[in-house]
Design a protein around this nucleic acid. Structure first.
Lengths: 186, 186
DNA sequence: CATGATACGGAAGCAAGATTCCGTTTGTCA
DNA sequence: TGACAAACGGAATCTTGCTTCCGTATCATG
């Protein structure tokens, strides 16, 4: 037997192909972030400097391309939640969670639109756990209203996404101020 | 000259046509309210018991049909604002404004979606005036935070629309409670 | 640098849904 | 009730934008 014949091993991707994949992701993030979910595949291709066919060689559908962007985004959202959970100040952690969380919405219209759509109601555990920690700790410390649960966090981000996408930073700041005040115990 | 020849007078619409127009509006409100903005013209036609052609004889485009629905909706929203302005309790008026305003969103998915879209930023005077009155009176009485302006009212309704359309009444209740608390002065 | 495998561009193909069109039906009026 | 205009239904058409396909160009290896 030839021990090195591994039938399952596709040889590595060509260098230019890998480069193109990155360009596509970057261009898609930029275009969708700036103009929203309904930018056309042609526009993304043009921005990436490739043909549409090249996009489809990397991502089977437009939806799959978006999903790839959300994966990346999800990583950043989880990062925000984890860093907030490390904040020693219980109320500061809450503020940080929502402020930095909505910062991620500010320059990404597509993401804001996607948050409005009926998506998966259950966030992944990596996101839920640190978020729960922030809430519980704040309630324990008596700085967060006790009827505010993990599922309301999604509501707040959903709500903010609409406001951010139509009113930008200024609208975000005003409404977030109101909501944060409303989160203090009565 | 024949004094009764009025060239600008189209003779009155046929009775069945007027009936159909009403049916279409009612069916459109129901379908769009239940399934959202992207119900198909065919579905609306079927629900109204007419052919698509009949819809187009009354409304030149799908957009025009929606606009007709929003006109009706706008009347109800103005009504809410006017009644709130009559509420003798300054804070009660604020609560009434937002509670009844979001009640209008509860059974109308299409309207919620439309509120999320980049629409006209300036509300008509008939809506702005009573709303301003409610806010000013509440600020005067010291029961509303002073940095909350008329333009933030739109933000709140936009925010709520997303929450209502994905979380229904329960989500509306939770978030509205938070926001109303946040509207009290610090 | 020759050769085969990979990857590319973008025109053509398709699908979904809005809108038009026209032969038929129905209401109105004398 | 007969005649005509007004309305109707819904198949055909048009539009828009995603996806596929294939002839050509580029990379990697001996």
């Amino acid at each position: 037997m030839a021990p090195n014949v591994d039938v399952t091993a596709p040889r590595p991707q060509r260098a230019d192909a890998r480069r193109n994949r990155e360009r596509i992701l970057k261009a898609a993030a930029k275009e969708i972030g700036a103009r929203g979910l309904d930018v056309q595949m042609e526009d993304i291709a043009r921005a990436a400097g490739v043909g549409v066919g090249t996009i489809y060689r990397n991502f089977p559908t437009k939806q799959a391309l978006q999903e790839a962007l959300w994966d990346e985004k999800r990583r950043r959202v989880i990062d925000v939640a984890e860093r907030a959970a490390l904040n020693p100040d219980p109320w500061g952690a809450v503020e940080q969670l929502f402020t930095e969380g909505t910062d991620l919405q500010l320059d990404d219209l597509g993401w804001c639109q996607a948050l409005g759509l009926p998506g998966p109601q259950e966030p992944p555990a990596e996101l839920r756990d640190p978020t729960t920690k922030v809430l519980e700790r704040a309630k324990q410390a008596g700085v967060l209203r006790s009827d505010f649960g993990i599922e309301d966090v999604g509501s707040v981000f959903g709500a903010m996404s609409t406001v951010v996408s139509s009113g930008g930073r200024a609208a975000r700041d005003s409404l977030l101020k109101v909501i944060l005040d409303g989160l203090r115990p009565r």
